[in-house]
């Protein structure tokens, strides 16, 4: 219990410290920090429409964040969410432009399943190589990110190039596959329900089930888990595949809900942001939900800030990075005391 409150305190203090420094940076642009932040918050949650946009922006970050959280929680380092997201998104879009005339309900189910499977497979490969042959999954997944990204780029500039104008994208997918937008002014769509279900499943798996416990023990001490009779290899594979499926789902929802096509740059670093958020909250899925919401508020508010006050929206990223650094430093300093005692034999 103490641990949890300590973490919460560190994150809160760090966040406000970063906000404070961000405010000082705003002064460089001759903008009062109060105005700046007011614009940011209003631009993100000020009315129903911007709130919808913010929630829409939150979904891919939330899903990739959970994807990272589950694999890191189990101690297998899936850095490949980006690749899993891209590949799943592309395959779903390719399917959507190829097949027509399937009943909508069924098409949506098929689309989501295909996205899950593709993401899962792209994670299964490095997972299997890690578990069976002890290949470094970190490098492998980073490399597989680039392979997936360049492959999809090739496809959208080659065989699947759009015939409807802008380059670097596929055609619009079959309407039967669309998640309907909840209102015309934002991209938030019925896919949000799928995201909610997925989040609930992950929270159950990680927090309440036996698997969450066994995963955590495998990460903290794999030998200990083996010793306790845990089938560590099977557990790691399961975490890896679920992780890939979540990243794949993020891509699928972007295609079927937001853009209705695949385009290059469909995920401008969502997975990296998700990864940092997941690590910042120590892989706690509830923490990922909260921080990805805050991040989405900052990101969509940042856009408003740039439009209204001419402060570059990248300032938001810098505030984010600062808070990450403060949190990290906070954890280290508070752990140092405890670790010092351990060193004594």
């Amino acid at each position: 219990m103490m641990e949890r409150y300590k973490g919460l305190l560190i994150i809160t203090v760090s966040f406000f410290l970063a906000i404070f420094i961000g405010g000082l940076l705003m002064l460089l642009y001759k903008v009062s920090p109060i105005d700046g932040y007011k614009e940011m918050v209003m631009g993100a949650i000020g009315n129903k429409f911007v709130l919808y946009s913010t929630l829409d922006r939150m979904i891919p970050i939330l899903l990739t964040g959970l994807s990272i959280a589950i694999s890191f929680h189990a101690g297998i380092w899936n850095i490949g969410a980006q690749g899993q997201l891209y590949l799943a998104a592309f395959v779903v879009a390719a399917m959507g432009v190829t097949f027509h005339g399937i009943p909508s309900m069924m098409y949506i189910v098929i689309g989501v399943s295909v996205g899950l499977v593709v993401g899962g497979i792209w994670a299964w490969i490095p997972g299997y190589l890690k578990v069976k042959y002890n290949v470094n999954e970190v490098v492998l997944t980073i490399m597989m990110n680039s392979i997936a990204v360049y492959f999809t780029l090739y496809m959208v500039n080659g065989p699947f190039r759009t015939t409807q104008g802008s380059l670097g994208a596929t055609n619009i997918i079959d309407k039967g596959m669309w998640f309907k937008h909840l209102n015309p002014l934002s991209n938030l769509n019925t896919g949000v329900y799928v995201a909610i279900v997925a989040t609930a499943v992950i929270v159950y798996l990680m927090v309440f089930s036996k698997y969450g416990y066994e995963w955590k023990m495998s990460r903290l001490n794999q030998r200990f888990a083996v010793y306790g009779g845990v089938d560590v290899k099977r557990n790691l594979m399961m975490a890896m595949v679920v992780s890939g499926m979540l990243a794949g789902l993020a891509g699928t929802l972007l295609v079927m809900g937001d853009y209705h096509r695949f385009l290059n740059g469909i995920s401008p670093g969502y997975s990296w942001t998700g990864m940092i958020l997941a690590m910042m909250v120590n892989y706690d899925p509830i923490g990922v939900i909260i921080t990805s919401f805050i991040y989405a508020v900052m990101a969509s508010g940042g856009l408003q800030m740039e439009l209204m006050l001419n402060i570059p929206q990248e300032l938001v990223q810098i505030i984010f990075v600062l808070s990450v650094m403060f949190v990290t430093a906070g954890y280290s300093v508070s752990n140092k005391m405890a670790n010092r005692i351990q060193e004594e034999g």
Partner: peptide
């Protein structure tokens, strides 16, 4: 420490 426990748990 290496086998019998997960010291961080």
């Amino acid at each position: 420490i290496k086998t019998g426990l997960a010291p961080l748990a």
